[in-house]
């Protein structure tokens, strides 16, 4: 507990957290604006929207225009960049120690290194949860206002919405853990930051394009493998209803938990063995 307190104090006493929080806020505002525009087009969807599409495609479009999905999208707005930021913060929690050579002091204070990594994982998770909490409060206000403007009701009575919000919290926590694991693997502060941003963006868009190009060539089961790509898994977790052609939301959670556990364990084992010099 002392160690977690120390780790949180480390974060609080430097500028990193509020710089990232500021960036997150700006990106959230942008994303929410886009989601608002998307909402208006989805709600005003006419019959002509599905003209010329295959039955499967039109099924997907209609599922997206389901009010549960529109609302879930608004209440979890900002997730895409928010997750990137909490992951970076998790990585910085570790790479700072090497960048500023504080690893020596840290491991002198606590000779049992597993405890240090454990504390960092917990502190990063708490931080991720804080980012989620602030974003969600903003989303609840703004989302409800947008939905009210379209006379659709806030949808907050729906269980699906709260499940999406809850799984979104899990996503924030898990991505923080992924960040800590990545920070151990890539000790260079700049290297870790650049690599994570690249992999996150390339993973998301690259995989999206890849699976689109493959199409149904290898069958529907292959499309469902999209969930193995971490950013796609976290997106799946926050859909309001099960989308046609996608696995259920909990599969996304399982995939991310698996990634987080693997990264956390590898990170801990590495730190236990490594010489600090």
């Amino acid at each position: 507990m002392n160690l977690v307190r120390s780790e949180l104090l480390k974060i609080r006493t430097t500028a990193t957290w509020w710089v990232l929080a500021l960036i997150t806020f700006v990106l959230w505002a942008l994303t929410t604006l886009i989601n608002w525009l998307q909402t208006s087009s989805l709600i005003n969807l006419g019959a002509e929207a599905t003209e010329g599409l295959t039955p499967e495609q039109s099924e997907q479009v209609l599922a997206q225009s389901d009010i549960a999905n529109i609302a879930a999208n608004l209440y979890t707005s900002g997730q895409f960049f928010g997750l990137l930021m909490v992951m970076l913060l998790g990585a910085i929690v570790v790479t700072n120690e090497f960048f500023h050579q504080t690893a020596t002091t840290t491991f002198l204070t606590t000779a049992r290194r597993t405890e240090v990594i454990g504390a960092k994982l917990i502190a990063a998770t708490i931080l991720g949860a804080a980012f989620w909490l602030v974003t969600t409060v903003l989303n609840l206000v703004v989302g409800a206002l947008i939905l009210a403007a379209y006379d659709t009701g806030s949808q907050l009575g729906s269980g699906a919405i709260w499940r999406a919000i809850g799984l979104n919290a899990l996503a924030y926590a898990l991505w923080s853990i992924l960040g800590v694991g990545a920070g151990v693997l890539i000790r260079s502060q700049i290297g870790a930051t650049i690599t994570l941003v690249m992999v996150y963006l390339a993973g998301y868009f690259g995989a999206g394009i890849f699976f689109l190009a493959i199409g149904d060539r290898w069958g529907e089961w292959f499309q469902e493998l999209q969930v193995l790509v971490p950013p796609l898994a976290s997106q799946l977790m926050i859909t309001g209803t099960e989308l046609p052609g996608s696995p259920p939301q909990w599969v996304g959670a399982v995939v991310l938990v698996a990634y987080a556990v693997v990264m956390g364990v590898i990170g801990t084992l590495l730190v236990r063995r490594r010489d600090i010099s």
């Binding site: 160690l3 120390s6 104090l9 480390k10 006493t13 020596t104």
Partner: peptide
């Protein structure tokens, strides 16, 4: 260990953006 052994290994081992007192408070907490 800090109650038994104190060590000074490298002069520049603190976060550059952290104040001196906060550097020590972080260690105290841990």
């Amino acid at each position: 260990p800090l109650r038994h052994v104190g060590a000074v290994l490298e002069a520049s081992s603190a976060h550059k953006g952290r104040t001196g007192i906060n550097h020590l408070r972080v260690i105290c907490a841990a």
